[in-house]
Amino acid sequence: MKVLVVEDEALLASTLMMGLRAEGFTVVAVATGVDGLARATEGEYDVVVLDIMLPGLNGYEVLRHMRSRGIWTPVLMLTAKDGEYDQTDAFDLGADDYLTKPFSFIVLVARLRALVRRAAPQRPAVLEAGMLTLDPSRREVFRGDAQISLTPREYGLLEYLMRNKDTVVTKAQILQNVWAADYEGADNVVEVYVGYVRRKIDIPFGTKTIETVRGVGYRLASDGVS
């Protein structure tokens, strides 16, 4: 899942980025309302974490502009305020959820996952490719009855490929959706992690699930074996 964090408190933003990435999210963080609106408008995100008190445009203004432009990405708003009026304002403008600082990180993650599930009912509860299954709610991967242990990055890569099964995805698309839109490292990191995933989901089972499409990218076969 890809998350946009719009938060001007540097320490909180850094903590959120580290924590969400450890949970397997792809995170893009910006510190102003103007940058937040631009990112939300130009990019594709599964959910937005939006602070209310921001420089440039405040969170209310960012949310209002998003909704007026037809951007219905789920938004969870953060604020240091705890008045009922603030919550009513947020929901009236189109917010989907609301947390008051300080908050529990565990609660934040649970609410983000719930927002994504509600906003995208077309996504299957369990992703399948032949005998390979991935359960996003439990973050579990199985080949038949055998459970497969993946690191957060490996899991994010496999989830992205399974959500796009039978479709060729480029290295750039993988980097943008599994790493970050502003990733500046070498793109051969994708090859490295595809190798890691193959060694866990295929080699022990004698299968070949992820196909390399030379000069283009990768494709995961819908039947789980190509």
Rank of each mutant, 00 (worst) to 15 (best):
Glu23Ala: 08
Gly36Ile: 01
Arg21Trp: 10
Ala38Lys: 14
Leu50Ala: 08
Asp35Gly: 14
Pro74Lys: 04
Leu54Lys: 15
Thr32Tyr: 13
Ala29Lys: 09
Thr26Met: 13
Asp82Met: 11
Leu63His: 01
Leu20Val: 09
Leu20Gly: 12
Ala80Leu: 04
Val49Cys: 13
Thr79Lys: 12
Arg64Ala: 12
Arg67Tyr: 11
Arg39Met: 13
Thr26Phe: 07
Gly19Ala: 13
Met77Phe: 11
Glu23Phe: 05
Met66Pro: 03
Met77Asn: 04
Glu23Ser: 07
Leu20Phe: 09
Tyr45Ala: 04
Tyr85Pro: 06
Ala22Cys: 04
Tyr85His: 09
Gly43His: 06
Gly33Glu: 02
Tyr60Glu: 02
Pro55Trp: 14
Arg64Thr: 05
Ala40Arg: 00
Glu84Asp: 06
Thr79Arg: 10
Tyr45Phe: 15
Ala40Glu: 00
Phe25Met: 05
Met18Ala: 12
Ala31Tyr: 11
Gly59Asp: 01
His65Cys: 01
Met18Trp: 09
Val27Gly: 09
Ile71Asp: 02
Glu84Met: 13
Asp46Met: 10
Leu63Glu: 01
Pro55Ile: 13
Gly70Tyr: 13
Gly56Thr: 07
Gly33Lys: 00
Tyr60Arg: 01
Ile71Thr: 04
Ala38Ile: 06
Pro55Arg: 10
Leu20Lys: 09
Thr73Gly: 03
Pro55Thr: 08
Leu78Met: 12
Arg21Gly: 15
Met77Gly: 15
Phe25Gly: 04
Asn58Leu: 02
Ala80Gly: 14
Glu23Asp: 14
Gly59Trp: 00
Arg39Thr: 06
Lys81Ala: 12
Leu20Ile: 06
Glu23His: 06
Ile52Glu: 09
Ser68Gln: 12
Thr32Leu: 09
Tyr45Ile: 06
Met66Lys: 04
Gly19Leu: 04
Ala38Arg: 14
Val48Gln: 05
Pro74Thr: 01
Tyr85Thr: 13
Asp51Tyr: 15
Thr73Trp: 03
Gly59Pro: 06
Glu84Thr: 15
Leu63Met: 06
Gly36Asp: 02
Gly19Asn: 15
Val49Lys: 04
Ile52Gly: 07
Glu23Asn: 07
Arg39Leu: 08
Glu84Asn: 10
Glu23Lys: 09
Asn58Cys: 01
Val75Gly: 06
Leu20Trp: 10
Gly24Glu: 11
Ala80Gln: 09
Gly59Ala: 03
Gly83Cys: 07
Val47His: 05
Ala38Glu: 11
Val34Lys: 10
Ala31Lys: 14
Leu50Gly: 07
Pro74Ala: 08
Gly24Asn: 05
Glu42Ala: 08
Val34Leu: 07
Leu54Thr: 13
Gly33Met: 01
Ala31Val: 07
Ala31Gly: 14
Val30Thr: 07
Thr32Pro: 12
Gly24Val: 10
Pro74Met: 02
Asn58Ser: 01
Arg39Trp: 13
Val62Met: 00
Arg21Leu: 11
Val49Ile: 15
Gly19Ile: 05
Val75Pro: 05
